[in-house]
Amino acid sequence: MLRYIATRVVSLIPILFIVSLIVFLIIHLTPGNPAALILGQDASRASIHQLENKLGLNEPLFIQYLDWMKKLLTGDLGQSVYSSESVKGIIISHIGPTINLTVFALVLTLLVAIPTAVIAVWKRNTLLDPIFISLSLLGVSIPAFWLAILLVLIFAVTFPIFPVAGYVPLSRNFFNGLYHLFLPAVILACVETGLIARMLRDGMLEAIGQNYTKTARAKGLSESAVLLKHVFVNALIPTTTVVGTMVAGLLGGTVIVETIFTIPGIGQLLIDSIYRRDYPVIQGVILFIAVIYVLVNLLVDLIYTLLDPRIRYN
């Protein structure tokens, strides 16, 4: 097991290398002088030149990348052009709301998706199946921002049940915090549920075709017992991988939801930084999200392996 974990962790190195390369290239792709971008338009030529030397921008791209990597490995993500604070500090101060929102949405999604998928499989030969498929397709076809506008109009403006925007840290007031996060989380979850429920259903339908299911059925177990004991449990294990996908979807979705609800998280930080042309922060946020995504997937894989030891030998 330890050996497996070790190989899995080692296999991340090339991925993280590629991730860092892409993030590095984003700023070097920009038309124009990176030093001028970092310092802003009103910088003097002398200070641009000075920074070029300091950052080694006159060096070959390869050397620049190595230098950048060296700093990165010591946890130095650079400095914001806008507020001149460290990018690391800025990201840390924005991470809380995003984590809360993502986890909340994740829980909501699973709470709805799992029972829905089980029912869909159970009643797979009835009219519920096409309805389920249509709804899940509809779910992935609605733009999150449009849904957000409509839900805000209905549940926050016309019937003021939920706040239209804002964020209360959960540490300050847990329930009020959740209350503020509810609508944003529902919107993220709505979009995600269609996809996840569909994947769970497909996984379970496949499990139904398996030999063990047939054996169980042959033993004379009732349909619901077969479904719950054999199909569902067996399908659940591979679908832990789904959580990894969800994290990507949710992190992408937070950009929009945080902007609409003015939640001071990573997503809003990214959009604001793009408007401010604050490239070091843009770089930092993108890198951070990618690394989180890679790590979550590693974690999911490891949990998965623990649950189902067979995979290790593949």
Partner: peptide, 24 residues
């Protein structure tokens, strides 16, 4: 595949956002 894995570590929308920010 490692390159593809690396690219897929970015949520598609965020990658597109960052690229649009860089390219205009």
């Amino acid at each position: 595949m490692r390159i593809i894995d690396g690219m897929m570590a970015f949520p598609a929308l965020l990658l597109a956002l960052a690229l649009v920010a860089a390219l205009g």
